[in-house]
Design a protein around this nucleic acid. Structure first.
Length: 281
DNA sequence: AATAGGGTTACAT
DNA sequence: ATGTAACCCTATT
């Protein structure tokens, strides 16, 4: 019963780093067995190594001196930011047994996050996603992730982040999980007396299931949820609007180009009609 | 048998 | 109550 969590020591981390540098990522068993690192990693299994490496390298991946660490660009304030529908993610996490620095986190600019209030806007994003893709049966994690990825810059471990986020929202009764899908929980109260089936099929074969009964408290979330819904809708609208604006800009730019082109043509024509010779620049 | 990845629990803020 | 690290479970090869 003694597994109160064993935090990794610097020794172990170093060993892991060195091990990956020598063997490459994915050779967890080899690293663990290597007599050079084994002494430090006796208490760790190969999957422990894998997990640890995942944690260490989730935020930034050294690979190249270039690639500035891309942290979250959370601009919770202004709507319609420079929505660059770029797809920079998946920055090639290729193991590539390069002898060069395969270090996970040379990134020291940690704790940057210039965002003052970078608390949780993930919730908002989730609600936005859920209400926008109006899946009656709910949406699964992948759907939600990809929806959000299209509209916001997300950290690399976003999927992992999001899944815990979703799970928490469910625990807070703000979301409902049917199978693998999540949907906004509507407090069925305004309707009839027939008891709500009280969807609690959650018979987790898990161990120590702390009592999850919420006998009281939450009575008002309805408004909050409704608000979130509205916000989500509004955000979606503004997103669409922003797209439209961008398109308009593009068009007018093209128009400008066409205009100047026309102007040029006129000039050339005039010169030509005056007998001048015109050479293409 | 190992690995990769999703999911879950414990801990610290 | 939220982000994160350690841990667990499972599909895939």
């Amino acid at each position: 019963m003694g597994n109160p969590k064993q935090k990794w020591t610097s020794e172990e981390e170093e060993a892991l780093r060195a091990g990956v540098a020598k063997h490459g990522t994915g050779k967890w068993k080899d690293i663990q067995r290597d007599p050079e690192f084994n002494p430090f990693l006796v208490n760790r299994s190969n999957i422990d190594l894998k997990d640890k490496w995942r944690n260490m390298s989730c935020s930034a991946n050294g690979q190249g001196p270039r690639e500035k660490s891309r942290t979250v660009k959370a601009k919770a304030n202004s709507d319609a930011p420079a929505t660059q529908v770029s797809t920079p993610q998946t920055a090639v996490a290729v193991p590539a047994v390069r002898d060069s620095a395969t270090a996970p986190n040379a990134d020291d600019s940690s704790k940057a996050l210039p965002d003052g209030k970078n608390s949780s806007m993930y919730n908002t994003m989730i609600f936005e996603a859920l209400s926008s893709l109006k899946e009656p049966n709910g949406s699964d994690t992948s759907a939600i992730v990809s929806y959000i990825e299209q509209r916001h810059e997300v950290p690399q471990n976003f999927r992992r982040l999001l899944s815990t986020r979703l799970r928490r929202l469910v625990a807070q009764d703000k979301l409902e999980k049917v199978q693998n899908c999540y949907k906004v929980k509507s407090h069925a109260d305004a309707s009839l007396g027939t008891k709500t089936p009280a969807p609690k099929p959650e018979s987790q074969p898990r161990q120590t299931q702390t009592t999850v009964y919420r006998t009281s408290t939450d009575v008002v979330d309805e408004a909050a949820v409704a608000a979130a819904y509205k916000v989500a809708e509004a955000e979606n609208k503004s997103f669409v609007a922003a797209e439209a604006v961008k398109e308009a800009d593009r068009i007018s730019e093209m128009a400008e180009d066409a205009e100047s082109l026309l102007q040029l043509a006129k000039e050339i024509f005039e010169k030509c009609s005056q007998g001048e010779r015109v050479y293409a620049a």
